[in-house]
Design a protein around this nucleic acid. Structure first.
Length: 624
DNA sequence: GCCGTTTTCGGCCCGACTGTTTTCAGTCG
């Protein structure tokens, strides 16, 4: 039973409670708050970095009660759900409203109040039936309804059917920057920022949010809603506008005066739960916090608003990096004077900390370019100090994996190139015109790393390595005496994804125990929105990694981002070391390193937890 | 139903936009 399933159950209960509130006003209010309590608990569980089922098995109801927003009543229901697969209270509510709940649960724009009005007059059970009512013009006669509202409902149902999938951060990153740039370049705009889950660098993004500073909101909003990639205007007011883009993604804009920029950033960056927590903190301190500013409650005097850090400061907090704003304990950690903040979060890994990339492919296998080219761009455009060439090995036929002789030949080639880098004008002599052209079409749309001019290009080094294929029984397809000649070895699963959990776990533990394996590449094997990771008992694998000094990779390719943020937190808490790699098959993929660093920051990783923030000698001595 | 630096009752984040109203309820971010 996953956290998501439990969260969904609580949300269904909340929904039915709201439908049920049809009594006296006082009773309505009570049920309303009751429903919100279930929604809060559901949100909390959805975002919880630990597995509820495991927590319950280890600590029982007391474990559940330690989770914020979960009290005795909800804890009991979760326990019942875990034990029996159902909740009696929910089943009873369902008898009162025998509808297809999941049809209506995530129906955007049509909430429980509207549905209650319909259900109380007309007996329908499914979304199809609701659609039919609207088509037959049978809704407009209900109180509070109209022909317009009928049309609106049909449109909302249609949008719901299209489905609102979340976009991969890496896919929409260039678009977000493009719109941000469009806004910045407007003469009425003095500041603009892409915010929302994009700024928090979540691995998937539901919509794009922008905050701009302008003295002429009307004009800015008009330009925003008439951008070429806007398909439809959803709503447009004096300070806010919502549109649908051509790719069916929603984009939201908020226009504020300069003195509100900080609070607007806070509000629109979210997360929602982080914002709510901050507003509650403000309330306790006698303030009121909204997107326009932080105010004294008594005098209505504005005491902050222009900068985020002023607001955090007045709330008694350190400034919290956007990647951490999930209300998963960061606010408690950020209390002024907190030791743990000084020791932990002040040392959060930063975007310029990563010095090298330890998973890079070349045209020896399925990479697009030569080792020389991969080295050149790593140095010249991404300011890296080293890369490891880790091509696939022989049993991965589809990628043209290397056999033992080819691996050793490649290593000789790498030594040759390293010698040339050390002794000659290697970087000046490269002919790069062709690749550069390809590169700027794509890679330049990512924010790139800052070039450190003090470094000399002759310091750059290529490490020899391999992405060794893990066979079904946990052995490797290359012998240890060959692997031991390489600078580093990553091992990865590319087949037999669906072995039973116990066997898959044993398979990975065997790999960790292999003395030649330094790193587990993309350890859980997930592809976001496409493939769940393989079934493994992660705590057993982590413990094997700790015992054997095996390093866990954060694969920064945006469709993997493997391991995910909560697992990063778990790994670090267990003392396991990490590296961040781009899995580059083309130089433009080095840009993904930043996404991996974001992932690490969302997993609260310090610089010291990430081994490839170190220079080569220290890195190599940290490996097996 | 949850929660507590006004702690076991009485609160519960805050404001914008829309549509159906004519002062507000519903929904969203």
């Amino acid at each position: 039973m996953s956290n998501a399933e439990i969260a969904t159950m609580l949300r269904r209960i909340a929904f039915l409670i709201e439908l049920d509130s049809e009594n006296s006003e006082a009773e309505n209010t009570r049920l309303n708050f009751k429903s919100r309590a279930y929604i809060k608990a559901s949100d909390q569980i959805q975002n919880l970095p630990i597995n509820i089922k495991q927590l319950y098995e280890e600590k029982g109801i007391d474990g559940l009660l330690q989770i914020p927003s979960i009290g005795k009543a909800i804890a009991t229901k979760i326990s019942e759900f875990l034990n029996t697969g159902t909740v009696d209270y929910y089943e009873k509510l369902k008898l009162r409203y025998p509808i297809q709940i999941d049809d209506f649960l995530d129906l955007e724009g049509i909430g429980p109040k509207t549905l209650r009005r319909i259900f109380s007059k007309i007996n329908i059970k499914t979304l199809d039936e609701l659609e039919e009512l609207a088509r037959n013009r049978e809704l407009r006669i209900l109180p509070g309804f109209s022909a317009n509202k009928e049309t609106d409902i049909l449109k909302k149902i249609e949008m719901h059917r299209i489905g609102k999938k979340r976009f991969l951060l890496g896919d929409i990153y260039p678009l977000a920057l493009k719109i941000e740039e469009f806004l910045v370049n407007n003469e009425e705009v003095s500041k603009a920022a892409a915010v929302g889950s994009f700024r928090r660098m979540k691995e998937t993004v539901g919509d794009l949010d922008f905050v701009v500073v302008s003295n002429d909101p009307k004009k800015v909003i008009e330009k925003f809603v008439t951008m070429p990639n806007v398909k439809e205007i959803l709503s447009k007011g004096v300070t806010k506008a919502f549109v649908k883009l051509n790719n069916n993604m929603d984009a939201d804009l908020l226009v504020v005066p300069s003195e509100s920029f900080g609070t607007a950033l806070l509000y629109f960056t979210g997360s929602k739960r982080h914002g709510i927590h901050l507003r509650k903190l403000a309330q306790v301190k006698g303030y009121r916090l909204n997107e326009w500013g932080l105010y004294e409650n008594n005098t209505d005097q504005k005491i902050a608003g222009e900068s985020e850090s002023d607001v955090y400061d007045l709330l008694g907090l350190e400034w919290i990096p956007p990647e951490m704003r999930e209300d998963n304990g960061e606010i408690e950690l950020a209390k002024k004077g907190s030791n743990s903040w000084q020791h932990k979060m002040a040392l959060l890994v930063d975007y310029n900390d990563v010095r090298g990339d330890l998973q890079v492919h070349s045209n020896y296998t399925d990479g697009k370019l030569s080792i020389e080219d991969m080295a050149y761009y790593a140095r010249m455009l991404f300011d890296l100090d080293y890369i490891a060439i880790t091509d696939h090995t022989q049993s991965l036929k589809i990628a043209g994996g290397l056999d033992e002789k080819e691996i050793l030949d490649q290593q000789i080639k790498i030594h040759e190139i390293n010698d040339r880098i050390k002794s000659s004008q290697f970087f000046e002599d490269m002919d790069t015109s062709v690749v550069k052209n390809q590169f700027y079409h794509y890679g330049n749309n990512y924010r790139s790393r800052k070039k450190d001019d003090k470094k000399t290009d002759k310091k750059f080094r290529i490490l020899s390595g391999a992405e060794v294929n893990i066979l079904k029984d946990g052995t490797l397809d290359i012998s240890n005496n060959v692997l031991d000649k390489l600078d580093l070895v990553g091992a990865a699963i590319h087949s037999n994804f669906s072995l039973p959990e116990e066997i898959q776990t044993e398979r990975l533990i065997k790999v960790a125990q292999n003395p030649s394996v330094d790193i587990l590449f993309h350890p859980t094997g997930r592809i976001i929105n496409k493939r769940e990771g393989y079934q493994i008992n992660i705590s057993k694998v982590l413990s094997a990694c700790l015992d054997t000094k095996t390093v866990i990779e954060i694969d920064a390719h945006y469709n993997r981002l493997d391991i995910r943020d909560e697992l990063i937190r778990t790994s670090i808490n267990n003392g396991v070391n990490l590296v961040i790699d781009s899995d580059a098959h083309h130089p433009m993929h080095y840009a993904f390193l930043n996404l991996g660093i974001s992932q690490a920051r969302r997993g609260w990783a310090n610089k010291k937890d990430i081994l490839n923030t170190q220079p080569i000698p220290e890195l190599l001595s940290s490996l097996k």
